[in-house]
């Protein structure tokens, strides 16, 4: 049904949305980069200024981004893919938690909680198993990175 609809009725519909929106976002990023570097001086005589190369590369990115979007408009391609919700949110949350806590509370607590949050990112989570595994990994990281490789990491909260 969906296929038939795509072929007949939807001449106006975007034929390769993956490329179309992908290209547009890249073009938008290029514009943003051009704006962000607009305060930088450009060519001085023969010499490149600090702003020349960024503008050159951003300009080319803008062109290719738009070209991809146009190609996505006129050629057929796969539909947009669905984004996961639970996985990315919890996984990224665990990374942010690590970044926020590694300094104040130290490696042991920070990595243990990070691992428990991350464990919830999959629907296959088994809680007791995950908590035990988080504890094992924490001990492993402490032994490997702090005692084995002597990285200057704080282990416990600083008072």
């Amino acid at each position: 049904m969906a296929d038939a609809g795509q072929n007949t009725s939807a001449r106006k519909r975007i034929r390769n949305p993956q490329d179309f929106y992908g290209g547009l976002v890249l073009a938008a990023f290029a514009l943003f980069a051009i704006w962000a570097g607009s305060d930088l001086p450009g060519m001085r005589g023969f010499a490149f200024g600090p702003g020349t190369a960024p503008r050159l590369f951003s300009g080319l990115l803008l062109i290719t981004g738009l070209a991809i979007a146009v190609m996505g408009f006129i050629t057929d391609g796969p539909p947009l893919e669905k984004y996961g919700v639970r996985g990315p949110i919890l996984f990224i949350a665990s990374v942010i938690f690590f970044a926020a806590t590694i300094r104040p509370v130290g490696l042991v607590i920070s990595s243990f909680v990070t691992l428990v949050i991350a464990a919830a990112a999959t629907t296959e989570v088994k809680w007791i198993e995950s908590v035990i595994w988080a504890a094992i990994l924490t001990v492993f990281c402490v032994v490997l990175f702090v005692y084995g490789l002597k990285l200057p990491l704080q282990l416990w909260p600083r008072f």
Partner: peptide, 20 residues
């Protein structure tokens, strides 16, 4: 080894690696 045990390991290695 099921994937649910693997990705936390990648996570914590990468976090510590980037941080240090």
């Amino acid at each position: 080894v099921p994937y649910r045990h693997l990705y936390p390991m990648i996570l914590i290695f990468c976090c510590i690696g980037v941080y240090s």
